[in-house]
Amino acid sequence: MRFWRSLRLILTANRFHFMAHWSTPAHFWAGVIGMFVNNFLALFGVWAMLFAGKPELAVQCDAYLVLNLLTMLTFGLLHVFLGGLTELDKQVVDGGLDSVLVSSRNPLLMMSITQSHLPSWGDVLMGGVGLVILGVRGGFVFSFELLLMVICSFIGFACVFTLLGCVPFWFSRPERLNPVLINVVLAFNTYPALLDYPNRFRWFLVLGPVAVVGLIPTEFLSHPSLSVLALEVLGVVMVVSLTLVLFSLGLKRYQSTPMISLRRGA
């Protein structure tokens, strides 16, 4: 029952967010097209630099494409549907967590529905269309594997952002550190540096939550095996557990800000 009520809340919030975005078509399309172009250029640039005219790197090139489309889609889905989680660090610092904590819902659930990032529809469209094409070409089994990895990657990404959002509970000025960490996560999951790299277990140990977002799912989609699947599932479970524990501990340390403060606009 609680699950369905939570789902209904998420759907209602996102319906209203979308209606608000859609009500200004110029902004909506500018945001979507801008992000589409941004992603295309980023993909193209690295492809032109590393893979163009190198047939011996065809396998790595395919894996690079899958990695980026997967990361794009899950990043986009997170920013569109649970966008508030990506702003958790700012809300902890600015005291915006107050209005989330006073509601009668789970704080992470409430936090996630506070925002929806318009330009990320571009990520969803590009990643989604790309993966659908790959899925159709790859067949039913591949499509199923793809769906499974999208779900794992999405959960992993949500946890990574939540973990980053917990940094301010312990460090008072995360505004310099967090953008660095986010860029590092994205770099590992969009640039092909670690693709097809030997000893995937080592990345998991070294990179932890970062690896479950894109690297291990891409490895699974390129070379499906039970061991890689198990690694991904185990990784997701561990990341989720770590996130919930850290968030819960962090809430106990939350100090809010003075109640009387400058009003913030949209």
Partner: peptide
């Protein structure tokens, strides 16, 4: 918290980019 209604003079519980109606319905759902 289900028994509490809260008004912060200096902080808003509404969603700035939504209409008032949407904000209120979302609050009701919450």
């Amino acid at each position: 918290n289900r028994n509490l209604g809260i008004v912060f003079g200096a902080r808003s519980q509404l969603f700035f980019h939504m209409s008032v109606e949407q904000s209120l319905l979302l609050q009701a759902e919450t």
